[in-house]
Simulated assay, not measured.
Amino acid sequence: MNKAKKKIFADFIADRGLKTTRQRDIILDAFLASDRHLSIEDLYLKLRTSHPNIGYATVYRTLKLFAESGIAREIQFGDGQTRYEHVEQGEHHDHLVCTGCGAIIEFENEAIEKLQDKVAASHDFLIQYHKLELYGLCPKCRK
């Protein structure tokens, strides 16, 4: 799957007349290797020790390009930080967000998806996209 995302991004860069750079490749590899919802700072700090020549602004611009190309999605959880997650074609999930420690848990629930469709249909509403975020405390923070 990562190979496909790399191809999508390479095609996007070429279509925009931009150059493939070593720094973008390093940032892409680090992003794809992560299974977390990464902020710009998270990814920058992850790269800083092994690649001190990659600056914060480069990480910022590159993550924006990932989102524009469709391999990443920008998400906000109300804490003022934009995070980025992988986009899988045809896949959808929702989030549980801990207001104590900031943990983010992805979940899928077919019953919720069907209920959303039913509510939309009852209002003759066509859903184009949606996001569901539930905020509360994880088991660790409740102790």
Rank of each mutant, 00 (worst) to 15 (best):
D11M: 09
I40R: 10
E68D: 15
P52V: 00
D35V: 08
E106C: 03
V97K: 09
R22K: 15
E110N: 00
K114F: 05
K118V: 12
K6W: 01
A67I: 12
G90M: 03
L45N: 06
F77Y: 15
K118H: 09
L28M: 09
H93P: 00
E106H: 02
K64Y: 09
F9R: 10
V97P: 00
H51W: 11
H86S: 10
G80W: 01
E74T: 09
E106V: 06
K46Q: 15
A30S: 13
T21C: 14
F77T: 13
E108G: 09
I26E: 10
L63A: 06
T20C: 07
D94C: 05
R73Q: 13
I71R: 05
K5L: 15
L28G: 04
E41W: 06
I71M: 12
H92Y: 03
I27Q: 03
G102T: 09
N109A: 11
H92G: 04
S50V: 08
L47F: 05
G17R: 11
A103I: 13
Q76C: 04
A111M: 08
Y44L: 05
E88W: 08
L96S: 06
A67H: 09
Y44Q: 05
D42A: 07
T49G: 14
Y44I: 01
V97Y: 12
N53F: 11
